[in-house]
Design a protein around this nucleic acid. Structure first.
Lengths: 225, 225
DNA sequence: CTTGACAAGTTCGTATACGATTTTGCAAGA
DNA sequence: TCTTGCAAAATCGTATACGAACTTGTCAAG
C-alpha cells in the first residue's frame, strides 16, 4: 500500500470515513445488524484500521453503531420502543424551539415556510414527502436561534432513521399533515404562540399514534403468517 | 513496556480512560482549555495512544473535548451563550419528562422525592446543594420511563458542567429553590400535571435568569478592575 | 443424521514505529 | 530590548505488526 501521502490532510483521515458510513446508514444502504468489518472498510478508503475505529466510535456515541466486545461493530438496530421514546424527545424539543422561534420570525421566514409547504402539497413522489416534511419543520424552527437545540433535533431525527420516517409517512396520507402544517403556519403568522405550539404538539402526537399503529400491524403480521 | 497482557480485558482499554478523563473534566479537576496530551495520558494509564485517542473522540462527541487539527485535544471551554442554550434544552426535556412521569408515579416515588427534599433543606454545605438539587429533579422525572430522554438529560447536565452549576447555585439562596420544589412536589401528588409543569418551568426559567445575572456580573467585573 | 470437539482461518484490539507538523529554544540582527 | 529565523524537540496522526478472541469448517463419536 502507498506510504503516507505528503499531501496535508487538513481534517484527518477519519472524517471522510465517518461521513461516508454515516451517509450509508442514514439513507438505508446499510441496514440494522450489518457487521462493519474494520479491515474491509479500511481497504475501501485506502487507510489503516485506526482512523476507521475512530470513525466507528463517533458513530457509536451518536447511536448509529454498536460495539460488541471483541466482536466488532454493527449498524445499530433501533427497537420500536426507542423510536417511541425519540418521538417524545422530538415533541419536547420542537415545541420549545417553536416557542422561541415565533417571536423571532420575519416575513422572509414565513415566505420560505410557505414555499416549502406548497412544494410539499404538489409533490407526488412519496419518497420525497418525508424530506419535505422535515424541511418544513426546520423552516419554522430555525429562527429560534438556539443552535444547540437545533443540532440536537437533527441528531434525533437522524437517529430515528430514514427508514422509520418513511414507514411512518407511508401510513398517513398527504392531506392530514398538510392541513396541520397550514394550521401551525397560520398561528405563527398571527404570533399566537400557544395555538402554534398546540398545533405542533398535536401534529407530532399524531405521528406517534401512527407509529404505534404501524407497530401493531407489523406485530400482527409476524404472529400470523 | 509490558507486552499485551494475557488477561482478557472485557471492555477494552479505552473505557477506563474515557471514564477517568470524563470524571476529571466533570468535577472540575481539568478546566476549559487544558491540553490533553496523548502520550502523557497513555503513560498514566499504562497503554498506548490508540485507546487514548478513541476515548478522546468519544468525549469529543459529548461536547466535553475539542480536537484541533494537528494540534491535539483540549478540554472544551463552554461559552456562556451555550449554557443559556443548554438551559432551554433542559427546560424542554424536563417539562416533557415530568408530564410523562406524573401519571406513572407511585407512593414510593413521592417518598423518595420527599427524603431528598428534606436532606436538601437540612444541608448546610453549599458544595452539596447542586448535587441534591439534581437528585431531586431526577427523582421526580425518573418514573417517566423514557430512558432515552433521561439519558439525554444527563448528557445535557454534564455538558453544562459542574462548575457552571455551582456558580449558578451560589447566586441563588437555598429558600427559593426549596419553595419551588415543594410546590412542584405538591402538584405531582395531586396529579395536577399542568400545575407541576408550570412550576418546573418557572423553576428552570429562574435558573436561567440567575445565570444571566451571573453573566452580567462577570462581564462588569472584567470591564472594571 | 446429529452432536461435539478440535484445528485453521478471521477479525479484533492495541503496542510499536515513523513521517509530518507544530512548538520551542536560542542566536543573530534591527 | 524586541523581533526574526531556524534548528531541535515535542507532539500528532496513522501505517504496520502481532497476540488474543472469536468464527468456521471438518471429522469422529454417538
Amino acid at each position: 500500500m502507498r506510504r503516507a501521502q505528503s499531501k496535508a490532510e487538513e481534517r484527518g483521515a477519519s472524517s471522510p470515513i465517518y461521513a461516508g458510513l454515516r451517509a450509508k446508514i442514514l439513507n438505508g444502504e446499510l441496514t440494522g445488524g450489518t457487521p462493519l468489518r474494520q479491515d474491509e472498510i479500511a481497504r475501501q478508503f485506502g487507510v489503516s484500521k485506526i482512523p476507521v475505529r475512530e470513525a466507528l466510535r463517533q458513530l457509536e456515541s451518536e447511536g448509529l453503531v454498536e460495539f460488541r466486545p471483541r466482536r466488532g461493530a454493527i449498524v445499530r438496530e433501533i427497537p420500536d420502543s426507542e423510536v417511541l421514546e425519540l418521538i417524545d424527545v422530538r415533541l419536547a424539543l420542537e415545541c420549545r424551539a417553536l416557542e422561541l422561534s415565533i417571536p423571532q420570525m420575519i416575513e422572509s421566514d414565513f415566505q420560505l415556510a410557505e414555499e416549502i409547504h406548497e412544494e410539499y402539497a404538489a409533490e407526488s413522489d412519496r419518497e420525497r414527502w418525508s424530506e419535505l416534511n422535515l424541511r418544513f419543520h426546520h423552516s419554522i424552527l430555525e429562527p429560534c436561534g438556539n443552535h444547540t437545540l437545533l443540532t440536537l433535533l437533527s441528531d434525533i431525527e437522524q437517529r430515528m432513521g430514514a427508514a422509520t420516517r418513511l414507514r411512518v409517512t407511508r401510513v398517513s396520507g398527504l392531506d392530514r399533515p398538510l392541513r396541520e402544517h397550514e394550521t401551525i403556519l397560520m398561528a405563527c403568522k398571527a404570533g399566537d404562540v400557544d395555538a402554534a405550539v398546540a398545533g405542533l404538539r398535536g401534529h407530532i402526537e399524531t405521528t406517534r399514534k401512527e407509529f404505534v399503529a404501524y407497530m401493531r400491524r407489523s406485530q400482527l403480521k409476524s404472529l400470523d403468517p
